[in-house]
Design a protein around this nucleic acid. Sequence first.
DNA 1: CCACCTTTTGACCACCTGGTCAAAAGGTGG
DNA 2: CCACCTTTTGACCAGGTGGTCAAAAGGTGG
Lengths: 216, 216
Amino acid sequence: MAEKKSSKRARRPLTEIRQDNIDQILKAAERQFAETGFPGTTVAAIADAAGLPKPNVLYYFKSKEGLYRAVLKRILELWMEAMHDLSPDQHPREALRDYIVRKIRQSRDYPDASKIFAAEILHGAPYVREELEGPLKVQFDDTVEVIRAWIAKGWMDPVSPEHLLFTLWAATQSYADFGLQMRVLLERDELRDDDFDNGIELLTRLVLKGCGVKIV
Amino acid sequence: MAEKKSSKRARRPLTEIRQDNIDQILKAAERQFAETGFPGTTVAAIADAAGLPKPNVLYYFKSKEGLYRAVLKRILELWMEAMHDLSPDQHPREALRDYIVRKIRQSRDYPDASKIFAAEILHGAPYVREELEGPLKVQFDDTVEVIRAWIAKGWMDPVSPEHLLFTLWAATQSYADFGLQMRVLLERDELRDDDFDNGIELLTRLVLKGCGVKIV
DNA sequence: CCACCTTTTGACCACCTGGTCAAAAGGTGG
DNA sequence: CCACCTTTTGACCAGGTGGTCAAAAGGTGG
Protein backbone atom coordinates (compact mmCIF):
# COMPACT_ATOMS: atom_id res chain seq x y z
CA MET A 1 0.00 0.00 0.00
CA ALA A 2 2.75 2.41 -0.87
CA GLU A 3 0.43 4.78 -2.70
CA LYS A 4 -3.21 5.17 -3.60
CA LYS A 5 -4.03 4.32 -7.16
CA SER A 6 -6.70 7.01 -7.19
CA SER A 7 -5.97 10.57 -8.18
CA LYS A 8 -5.56 11.88 -4.62
CA ARG A 9 -2.04 13.09 -3.90
CA ALA A 10 0.73 11.67 -5.99
CA ARG A 11 2.60 14.09 -8.24
CA ARG A 12 2.34 12.12 -11.43
CA PRO A 13 3.65 13.21 -14.80
CA LEU A 14 1.00 14.37 -17.24
CA THR A 15 1.60 11.67 -19.82
CA GLU A 16 1.03 9.02 -17.20
CA ILE A 17 -2.08 10.73 -15.89
CA ARG A 18 -3.44 10.93 -19.38
CA GLN A 19 -2.84 7.30 -20.25
CA ASP A 20 -4.16 6.22 -16.90
CA ASN A 21 -7.38 8.16 -17.18
CA ILE A 22 -8.02 7.03 -20.72
CA ASP A 23 -7.54 3.42 -19.64
CA GLN A 24 -9.86 3.84 -16.67
CA ILE A 25 -12.51 5.44 -18.83
CA LEU A 26 -12.30 2.78 -21.54
CA LYS A 27 -12.50 0.04 -18.96
CA ALA A 28 -15.48 1.59 -17.21
CA ALA A 29 -17.18 2.33 -20.52
CA GLU A 30 -16.73 -1.23 -21.74
CA ARG A 31 -18.42 -2.61 -18.67
CA GLN A 32 -21.25 -0.10 -18.76
CA PHE A 33 -21.94 -0.54 -22.46
CA ALA A 34 -21.95 -4.31 -22.00
CA GLU A 35 -24.37 -4.06 -19.11
CA THR A 36 -26.91 -1.63 -20.49
CA GLY A 37 -26.09 -1.09 -24.14
CA PHE A 38 -25.24 2.13 -25.91
CA PRO A 39 -28.47 4.06 -25.46
CA GLY A 40 -28.97 2.70 -21.96
CA THR A 41 -25.59 3.86 -20.76
CA THR A 42 -25.17 7.38 -19.47
CA VAL A 43 -21.95 9.34 -19.61
CA ALA A 44 -22.43 10.13 -15.93
CA ALA A 45 -22.52 6.42 -15.10
CA ILE A 46 -19.27 5.85 -16.96
CA ALA A 47 -17.71 8.81 -15.20
CA ASP A 48 -18.81 7.49 -11.82
CA ALA A 49 -17.49 4.03 -12.57
CA ALA A 50 -14.20 5.54 -13.65
CA GLY A 51 -14.10 7.76 -10.57
CA LEU A 52 -14.03 10.99 -12.52
CA PRO A 53 -16.39 13.92 -12.96
CA LYS A 54 -18.50 13.81 -16.06
CA PRO A 55 -16.92 16.70 -17.97
CA ASN A 56 -13.57 15.04 -17.52
CA VAL A 57 -14.74 12.06 -19.52
CA LEU A 58 -15.93 14.36 -22.28
CA TYR A 59 -12.56 16.06 -22.13
CA TYR A 60 -10.78 12.87 -23.18
CA PHE A 61 -13.45 11.57 -25.54
CA LYS A 62 -15.29 14.30 -27.32
CA SER A 63 -18.64 12.58 -27.25
CA LYS A 64 -20.43 9.52 -25.96
CA GLU A 65 -20.45 8.17 -29.48
CA GLY A 66 -16.73 8.78 -29.82
CA LEU A 67 -16.12 6.85 -26.63
CA TYR A 68 -18.32 4.01 -27.84
CA ARG A 69 -16.45 3.86 -31.12
CA ALA A 70 -13.15 3.72 -29.25
CA VAL A 71 -14.44 0.82 -27.19
CA LEU A 72 -15.67 -0.95 -30.31
CA LYS A 73 -12.34 -0.52 -32.05
CA ARG A 74 -10.54 -2.30 -29.24
CA ILE A 75 -13.07 -5.10 -29.27
CA LEU A 76 -12.95 -5.65 -32.99
CA GLU A 77 -9.20 -6.08 -32.98
CA LEU A 78 -9.48 -8.70 -30.27
CA TRP A 79 -12.25 -10.36 -32.16
CA MET A 80 -10.50 -10.57 -35.50
CA GLU A 81 -7.40 -11.91 -33.87
CA ALA A 82 -9.14 -15.07 -32.70
CA MET A 83 -10.15 -16.08 -36.19
CA HIS A 84 -6.55 -16.33 -37.29
CA ASP A 85 -4.49 -19.47 -37.38
CA LEU A 86 -6.63 -21.75 -39.44
CA SER A 87 -4.21 -22.86 -42.13
CA PRO A 88 -5.02 -25.44 -44.80
CA ASP A 89 -1.85 -27.38 -43.99
CA GLN A 90 -2.89 -27.94 -40.44
CA HIS A 91 -5.12 -30.94 -39.87
CA PRO A 92 -8.67 -30.00 -38.83
CA ARG A 93 -8.32 -32.31 -35.87
CA GLU A 94 -6.00 -29.87 -34.13
CA ALA A 95 -7.00 -26.69 -35.92
CA LEU A 96 -10.68 -26.92 -35.08
CA ARG A 97 -10.08 -28.02 -31.52
CA ASP A 98 -7.68 -25.15 -30.95
CA TYR A 99 -10.11 -22.74 -32.51
CA ILE A 100 -12.90 -23.83 -30.20
CA VAL A 101 -10.63 -23.60 -27.18
CA ARG A 102 -9.50 -20.15 -28.17
CA LYS A 103 -12.99 -18.82 -28.77
CA ILE A 104 -14.45 -20.19 -25.57
CA ARG A 105 -11.50 -18.87 -23.58
CA GLN A 106 -12.21 -15.52 -25.14
CA SER A 107 -15.79 -15.71 -23.99
CA ARG A 108 -14.58 -16.52 -20.51
CA ASP A 109 -11.91 -13.82 -20.37
CA TYR A 110 -13.61 -11.00 -22.26
CA PRO A 111 -17.35 -11.47 -21.83
CA ASP A 112 -18.06 -7.75 -22.02
CA ALA A 113 -16.38 -7.46 -25.39
CA SER A 114 -18.50 -10.30 -26.70
CA LYS A 115 -21.68 -8.78 -25.34
CA ILE A 116 -21.05 -5.38 -26.84
CA PHE A 117 -20.32 -6.96 -30.19
CA ALA A 118 -23.43 -9.12 -29.99
CA ALA A 119 -25.65 -6.17 -29.12
CA GLU A 120 -24.14 -4.24 -31.96
CA ILE A 121 -25.02 -6.94 -34.52
CA LEU A 122 -28.39 -7.55 -32.94
CA HIS A 123 -29.37 -3.94 -33.43
CA GLY A 124 -28.28 -3.67 -37.02
CA ALA A 125 -24.56 -3.00 -36.58
CA PRO A 126 -24.96 0.77 -36.90
CA TYR A 127 -21.34 1.36 -35.95
CA VAL A 128 -19.53 -1.71 -37.34
CA ARG A 129 -21.18 -2.25 -40.71
CA GLU A 130 -18.02 -1.28 -42.53
CA GLU A 131 -15.76 -3.60 -40.58
CA LEU A 132 -18.20 -6.44 -41.17
CA GLU A 133 -18.22 -5.87 -44.90
CA GLY A 134 -14.48 -5.26 -45.08
CA PRO A 135 -11.93 -7.04 -42.92
CA LEU A 136 -14.29 -9.56 -41.35
CA LYS A 137 -15.66 -10.63 -44.71
CA VAL A 138 -12.14 -11.20 -46.00
CA GLN A 139 -11.22 -13.27 -42.95
CA PHE A 140 -14.43 -15.22 -43.33
CA ASP A 141 -13.83 -15.99 -47.00
CA ASP A 142 -10.29 -17.12 -46.25
CA THR A 143 -11.45 -19.40 -43.49
CA VAL A 144 -14.17 -20.85 -45.66
CA GLU A 145 -11.50 -21.67 -48.25
CA VAL A 146 -9.38 -23.41 -45.64
CA ILE A 147 -12.28 -25.64 -44.69
CA ARG A 148 -12.99 -26.35 -48.35
CA ALA A 149 -9.39 -27.43 -48.75
CA TRP A 150 -9.74 -29.82 -45.82
CA ILE A 151 -12.82 -31.30 -47.41
CA ALA A 152 -11.04 -31.64 -50.76
CA LYS A 153 -8.23 -33.52 -49.05
CA GLY A 154 -10.77 -35.90 -47.57
CA TRP A 155 -9.90 -34.84 -44.04
CA MET A 156 -13.50 -34.16 -43.22
CA ASP A 157 -17.00 -34.68 -44.57
CA PRO A 158 -18.35 -32.26 -47.16
CA VAL A 159 -20.29 -29.91 -44.90
CA SER A 160 -21.14 -26.27 -45.49
CA PRO A 161 -18.10 -24.33 -44.30
CA GLU A 162 -20.13 -21.15 -43.89
CA HIS A 163 -22.69 -22.68 -41.61
CA LEU A 164 -20.05 -24.59 -39.72
CA LEU A 165 -18.44 -21.27 -38.88
CA PHE A 166 -21.76 -19.72 -37.92
CA THR A 167 -22.40 -22.58 -35.55
CA LEU A 168 -18.93 -22.38 -34.07
CA TRP A 169 -19.26 -18.69 -33.43
CA ALA A 170 -22.73 -18.96 -31.99
CA ALA A 171 -21.90 -21.84 -29.69
CA THR A 172 -18.66 -20.37 -28.37
CA GLN A 173 -19.86 -16.81 -27.98
CA SER A 174 -22.96 -17.90 -26.17
CA TYR A 175 -20.74 -18.72 -23.20
CA ALA A 176 -20.34 -14.98 -22.85
CA ASP A 177 -23.55 -13.59 -24.31
CA PHE A 178 -25.87 -16.05 -22.62
CA GLY A 179 -23.67 -16.70 -19.64
CA LEU A 180 -26.37 -15.37 -17.36
CA GLN A 181 -28.89 -17.88 -18.65
CA MET A 182 -26.40 -20.69 -18.22
CA ARG A 183 -25.63 -19.59 -14.69
CA VAL A 184 -29.28 -19.57 -13.77
CA LEU A 185 -29.99 -22.95 -15.36
CA LEU A 186 -26.88 -24.58 -13.93
CA GLU A 187 -27.56 -22.96 -10.55
CA ARG A 188 -24.19 -21.30 -10.30
CA ASP A 189 -23.17 -17.91 -9.02
CA GLU A 190 -20.46 -17.82 -11.62
CA LEU A 191 -19.54 -20.13 -14.46
CA ARG A 192 -16.62 -22.28 -13.40
CA ASP A 193 -13.61 -23.35 -15.37
CA ASP A 194 -15.00 -26.83 -15.74
CA ASP A 195 -18.19 -25.43 -17.21
CA PHE A 196 -16.15 -23.88 -19.97
CA ASP A 197 -14.18 -27.13 -20.27
CA ASN A 198 -17.37 -29.12 -20.65
CA GLY A 199 -18.46 -26.71 -23.34
CA ILE A 200 -15.16 -27.15 -25.13
CA GLU A 201 -15.40 -30.92 -24.88
CA LEU A 202 -18.95 -31.14 -26.15
CA LEU A 203 -18.47 -28.73 -28.99
CA THR A 204 -15.21 -30.33 -30.06
CA ARG A 205 -16.89 -33.70 -30.10
CA LEU A 206 -19.86 -32.45 -32.08
CA VAL A 207 -17.68 -30.77 -34.65
CA LEU A 208 -14.94 -33.38 -35.08
CA LYS A 209 -17.12 -36.47 -34.91
CA GLY A 210 -20.02 -34.72 -36.61
CA CYS A 211 -17.83 -33.67 -39.54
CA GLY A 212 -16.16 -37.06 -39.77
CA VAL A 213 -12.72 -35.84 -38.75
CA LYS A 214 -10.67 -38.86 -37.73
CA ILE A 215 -9.78 -38.48 -34.08
CA VAL A 216 -6.60 -40.52 -34.37
CA MET B 1 -59.12 -1.84 -51.48
CA ALA B 2 -62.61 -1.86 -50.05
CA GLU B 3 -61.61 0.03 -46.92
CA LYS B 4 -58.60 1.64 -45.35
CA LYS B 5 -57.02 -0.39 -42.60
CA SER B 6 -56.21 2.83 -40.78
CA SER B 7 -58.62 4.42 -38.34
CA LYS B 8 -60.13 6.90 -40.82
CA ARG B 9 -63.84 6.41 -41.35
CA ALA B 10 -65.32 3.04 -40.56
CA ARG B 11 -67.86 2.85 -37.71
CA ARG B 12 -66.23 0.05 -35.83
CA PRO B 13 -67.42 -1.35 -32.52
CA LEU B 14 -65.33 -0.39 -29.52
CA THR B 15 -64.20 -3.88 -28.65
CA GLU B 16 -62.84 -4.31 -32.13
CA ILE B 17 -61.14 -0.94 -32.06
CA ARG B 18 -59.53 -1.80 -28.76
CA GLN B 19 -58.19 -5.18 -29.83
CA ASP B 20 -57.04 -3.76 -33.09
CA ASN B 21 -55.11 -0.91 -31.54
CA ILE B 22 -53.53 -3.12 -28.92
CA ASP B 23 -52.40 -5.49 -31.64
CA GLN B 24 -50.98 -2.70 -33.74
CA ILE B 25 -49.13 -1.25 -30.79
CA LEU B 26 -47.68 -4.59 -29.71
CA LYS B 27 -46.58 -5.32 -33.23
CA ALA B 28 -44.95 -1.93 -33.67
CA ALA B 29 -43.36 -2.13 -30.23
CA GLU B 30 -41.90 -5.55 -30.91
CA ARG B 31 -40.22 -4.34 -34.04
CA GLN B 32 -38.90 -1.17 -32.43
CA PHE B 33 -37.60 -2.91 -29.33
CA ALA B 34 -35.88 -5.51 -31.49
CA GLU B 35 -34.28 -2.82 -33.60
CA THR B 36 -33.00 -0.45 -30.95
CA GLY B 37 -33.50 -2.14 -27.59
CA PHE B 38 -35.54 -0.97 -24.65
CA PRO B 39 -33.67 2.21 -23.73
CA GLY B 40 -33.08 3.08 -27.37
CA THR B 41 -36.73 2.91 -28.28
CA THR B 42 -38.94 5.93 -27.81
CA VAL B 43 -42.65 5.78 -27.14
CA ALA B 44 -43.11 8.33 -29.89
CA ALA B 45 -41.40 6.00 -32.37
CA ILE B 46 -43.70 3.16 -31.41
CA ALA B 47 -46.71 5.43 -31.74
CA ASP B 48 -45.58 6.58 -35.17
CA ALA B 49 -45.00 3.02 -36.32
CA ALA B 50 -48.43 2.06 -35.05
CA GLY B 51 -50.02 5.08 -36.72
CA LEU B 52 -51.33 6.54 -33.47
CA PRO B 53 -50.62 9.64 -31.44
CA LYS B 54 -48.29 9.08 -28.52
CA PRO B 55 -50.76 9.59 -25.67
CA ASN B 56 -52.96 6.98 -27.25
CA VAL B 57 -50.24 4.38 -26.80
CA LEU B 58 -49.93 5.37 -23.15
CA TYR B 59 -53.67 5.08 -22.87
CA TYR B 60 -53.58 1.38 -23.67
CA PHE B 61 -50.30 0.60 -21.92
CA LYS B 62 -49.75 2.69 -18.86
CA SER B 63 -46.03 3.06 -19.33
CA LYS B 64 -43.19 2.24 -21.69
CA GLU B 65 -42.07 -0.42 -19.25
CA GLY B 66 -45.55 -1.90 -19.11
CA LEU B 67 -45.60 -2.12 -22.88
CA TYR B 68 -42.19 -3.74 -22.91
CA ARG B 69 -43.32 -6.29 -20.34
CA ALA B 70 -46.37 -7.08 -22.44
CA VAL B 71 -44.16 -7.65 -25.45
CA LEU B 72 -41.85 -9.86 -23.42
CA LYS B 73 -44.72 -11.92 -22.11
CA ARG B 74 -45.84 -12.78 -25.62
CA ILE B 75 -42.32 -13.68 -26.60
CA LEU B 76 -41.69 -15.90 -23.62
CA GLU B 77 -44.76 -17.98 -24.30
CA LEU B 78 -43.66 -18.52 -27.86
CA TRP B 79 -40.21 -19.34 -26.64
CA MET B 80 -41.23 -21.89 -24.04
CA GLU B 81 -43.52 -23.58 -26.50
CA ALA B 82 -40.68 -24.58 -28.79
CA MET B 83 -38.89 -26.49 -26.07
CA HIS B 84 -41.79 -28.86 -25.69
CA ASP B 85 -42.16 -32.19 -27.37
CA LEU B 86 -38.97 -33.86 -26.34
CA SER B 87 -40.25 -37.07 -24.80
CA PRO B 88 -38.02 -39.89 -23.55
CA ASP B 89 -39.98 -42.44 -25.57
CA GLN B 90 -39.27 -40.71 -28.82
CA HIS B 91 -35.99 -41.64 -30.44
CA PRO B 92 -33.44 -38.82 -30.45
CA ARG B 93 -33.03 -39.32 -34.18
CA GLU B 94 -36.42 -37.78 -34.86
CA ALA B 95 -36.79 -35.75 -31.67
CA LEU B 96 -33.55 -33.81 -32.06
CA ARG B 97 -34.01 -33.25 -35.75
CA ASP B 98 -37.51 -31.96 -35.22
CA TYR B 99 -36.32 -29.73 -32.42
CA ILE B 100 -33.64 -28.19 -34.60
CA VAL B 101 -36.11 -27.67 -37.43
CA ARG B 102 -38.59 -26.05 -35.08
CA LYS B 103 -36.08 -23.72 -33.49
CA ILE B 104 -34.56 -22.57 -36.76
CA ARG B 105 -38.01 -22.02 -38.26
CA GLN B 106 -38.77 -19.91 -35.24
CA SER B 107 -35.68 -17.83 -35.89
CA ARG B 108 -36.80 -17.40 -39.46
CA ASP B 109 -40.40 -16.56 -38.64
CA TYR B 110 -39.99 -14.52 -35.46
CA PRO B 111 -36.56 -12.93 -35.58
CA ASP B 112 -37.65 -9.91 -33.58
CA ALA B 113 -38.82 -12.05 -30.70
CA SER B 114 -35.48 -13.80 -30.62
CA LYS B 115 -33.58 -10.54 -30.71
CA ILE B 116 -35.53 -9.01 -27.87
CA PHE B 117 -34.99 -12.09 -25.77
CA ALA B 118 -31.29 -12.15 -26.59
CA ALA B 119 -30.84 -8.49 -25.69
CA GLU B 120 -32.71 -9.08 -22.47
CA ILE B 121 -30.35 -11.90 -21.40
CA LEU B 122 -27.32 -10.05 -22.64
CA HIS B 123 -28.10 -7.10 -20.41
CA GLY B 124 -28.72 -9.08 -17.27
CA ALA B 125 -32.34 -10.11 -17.81
CA PRO B 126 -33.71 -7.26 -15.69
CA TYR B 127 -37.27 -8.07 -16.70
CA VAL B 128 -37.25 -11.85 -17.16
CA ARG B 129 -35.12 -13.05 -14.28
CA GLU B 130 -38.12 -14.64 -12.61
CA GLU B 131 -39.25 -16.54 -15.67
CA LEU B 132 -35.73 -17.81 -16.19
CA GLU B 133 -35.50 -19.10 -12.66
CA GLY B 134 -39.02 -20.48 -12.67
CA PRO B 135 -40.72 -21.99 -15.71
CA LEU B 136 -37.69 -22.04 -17.98
CA LYS B 137 -35.56 -23.77 -15.36
CA VAL B 138 -38.23 -26.45 -14.95
CA GLN B 139 -38.44 -27.00 -18.70
CA PHE B 140 -34.69 -27.15 -18.88
CA ASP B 141 -34.40 -29.72 -16.12
CA ASP B 142 -37.07 -31.85 -17.74
CA THR B 143 -35.34 -31.72 -21.08
CA VAL B 144 -32.02 -32.59 -19.51
CA GLU B 145 -33.66 -35.64 -17.97
CA VAL B 146 -35.04 -36.71 -21.33
CA ILE B 147 -31.58 -36.59 -22.84
CA ARG B 148 -30.17 -38.49 -19.89
CA ALA B 149 -32.77 -41.18 -20.49
CA TRP B 150 -31.73 -41.43 -24.13
CA ILE B 151 -28.14 -41.86 -23.05
CA ALA B 152 -29.12 -44.50 -20.51
CA LYS B 153 -30.91 -46.44 -23.21
CA GLY B 154 -27.78 -46.34 -25.31
CA TRP B 155 -29.48 -44.29 -28.01
CA MET B 156 -26.72 -41.74 -27.98
CA ASP B 157 -23.25 -41.14 -26.58
CA PRO B 158 -22.88 -39.90 -23.02
CA VAL B 159 -22.55 -36.17 -23.67
CA SER B 160 -23.40 -33.31 -21.33
CA PRO B 161 -27.13 -32.71 -21.84
CA GLU B 162 -26.86 -29.19 -20.45
CA HIS B 163 -24.18 -28.09 -22.86
CA LEU B 164 -25.84 -29.86 -25.73
CA LEU B 165 -28.91 -27.74 -25.11
CA PHE B 166 -26.85 -24.56 -24.82
CA THR B 167 -25.24 -25.31 -28.15
CA LEU B 168 -28.56 -26.11 -29.78
CA TRP B 169 -30.07 -22.86 -28.58
CA ALA B 170 -27.08 -20.78 -29.53
CA ALA B 171 -26.75 -22.25 -32.99
CA THR B 172 -30.43 -22.05 -33.85
CA GLN B 173 -31.10 -18.62 -32.39
CA SER B 174 -28.10 -17.14 -34.10
CA TYR B 175 -30.04 -17.41 -37.36
CA ALA B 176 -32.16 -14.61 -35.95
CA ASP B 177 -29.82 -12.76 -33.61
CA PHE B 178 -26.85 -12.73 -35.97
CA GLY B 179 -28.86 -12.85 -39.15
CA LEU B 180 -27.39 -9.52 -40.19
CA GLN B 181 -23.86 -10.84 -39.91
CA MET B 182 -24.79 -13.92 -41.91
CA ARG B 183 -26.41 -11.80 -44.59
CA VAL B 184 -23.32 -9.64 -44.94
CA LEU B 185 -20.93 -12.60 -45.03
CA LEU B 186 -23.09 -14.60 -47.44
CA GLU B 187 -23.65 -11.49 -49.54
CA ARG B 188 -27.41 -11.71 -49.43
CA ASP B 189 -30.04 -9.03 -49.11
CA GLU B 190 -32.13 -11.45 -47.13
CA LEU B 191 -31.52 -14.93 -45.82
CA ARG B 192 -33.18 -17.41 -48.14
CA ASP B 193 -35.09 -20.54 -47.28
CA ASP B 194 -32.20 -22.68 -48.42
CA ASP B 195 -29.87 -20.83 -46.06
CA PHE B 196 -32.04 -21.92 -43.19
CA ASP B 197 -32.22 -25.41 -44.69
CA ASN B 198 -28.45 -25.59 -44.87
CA GLY B 199 -28.28 -24.55 -41.26
CA ILE B 200 -30.74 -27.26 -40.33
CA GLU B 201 -28.81 -29.84 -42.28
CA LEU B 202 -25.44 -28.96 -40.82
CA LEU B 203 -26.64 -28.70 -37.27
CA THR B 204 -28.62 -31.92 -37.47
CA ARG B 205 -25.58 -33.68 -38.81
CA LEU B 206 -23.31 -32.29 -36.12
CA VAL B 207 -25.69 -33.25 -33.37
CA LEU B 208 -26.80 -36.68 -34.55
CA LYS B 209 -23.49 -37.91 -35.88
CA GLY B 210 -21.56 -36.06 -33.20
CA CYS B 211 -23.60 -37.63 -30.43
CA GLY B 212 -23.46 -41.06 -32.00
CA VAL B 213 -27.17 -41.28 -32.76
CA LYS B 214 -27.67 -44.00 -35.33
CA ILE B 215 -29.12 -42.44 -38.44
CA VAL B 216 -30.94 -45.57 -39.57
C1' DC C 1 -82.34 11.23 -29.49
C1' DC C 2 -79.86 11.41 -25.30
C1' DA C 3 -77.14 10.48 -21.09
C1' DC C 4 -73.06 7.79 -20.48
C1' DC C 5 -68.84 5.47 -21.32
C1' DT C 6 -64.60 4.86 -24.14
C1' DT C 7 -61.22 6.66 -27.16
C1' DT C 8 -58.53 10.42 -29.29
C1' DT C 9 -55.67 14.32 -29.20
C1' DG C 10 -53.08 18.74 -28.61
C1' DA C 11 -50.88 21.14 -25.16
C1' DC C 12 -48.06 20.79 -21.48
C1' DC C 13 -44.42 19.59 -17.92
C1' DA C 14 -40.80 17.82 -14.86
C1' DC C 15 -36.84 15.52 -15.50
C1' DC C 16 -32.80 13.70 -17.38
C1' DT C 17 -29.25 13.62 -20.98
C1' DG C 18 -25.27 14.87 -23.69
C1' DG C 19 -22.56 18.52 -24.08
C1' DT C 20 -20.42 23.45 -23.07
C1' DC C 21 -17.74 26.85 -20.66
C1' DA C 22 -14.80 29.44 -18.02
C1' DA C 23 -12.31 29.58 -14.23
C1' DA C 24 -9.34 27.14 -11.09
C1' DA C 25 -5.87 23.74 -10.06
C1' DG C 26 -2.04 21.11 -11.28
C1' DG C 27 2.17 19.97 -13.91
C1' DT C 28 6.31 21.52 -16.92
C1' DG C 29 10.52 23.60 -18.61
C1' DG C 30 13.58 27.12 -18.34
C1' DC D 1 10.13 31.06 -9.29
C1' DC D 2 7.46 32.01 -13.25
C1' DA D 3 5.09 31.94 -17.77
C1' DC D 4 2.75 28.35 -20.16
C1' DC D 5 0.28 24.27 -21.11
C1' DT D 6 -2.78 20.46 -19.59
C1' DT D 7 -6.22 18.77 -16.59
C1' DT D 8 -10.12 19.27 -13.34
C1' DT D 9 -14.50 20.78 -11.98
C1' DG D 10 -18.96 23.16 -10.75
C1' DA D 11 -22.43 25.58 -12.98
C1' DC D 12 -25.10 25.70 -16.72
C1' DC D 13 -28.08 24.80 -20.93
C1' DA D 14 -30.81 23.25 -25.00
C1' DG D 15 -33.21 19.39 -26.47
C1' DG D 16 -35.53 15.24 -25.95
C1' DT D 17 -38.04 11.88 -22.94
C1' DG D 18 -41.77 9.57 -20.51
C1' DG D 19 -45.83 10.76 -18.80
C1' DT D 20 -50.20 13.86 -17.59
C1' DC D 21 -54.48 16.25 -18.37
C1' DA D 22 -58.64 18.02 -19.79
C1' DA D 23 -61.42 18.66 -23.35
C1' DA D 24 -63.28 16.93 -27.58
C1' DA D 25 -64.82 13.23 -30.50
C1' DG D 26 -66.73 8.88 -31.12
C1' DG D 27 -69.46 4.78 -29.86
C1' DT D 28 -73.34 2.53 -26.94
C1' DG D 29 -77.76 1.28 -24.94
C1' DG D 30 -82.10 2.49 -23.78
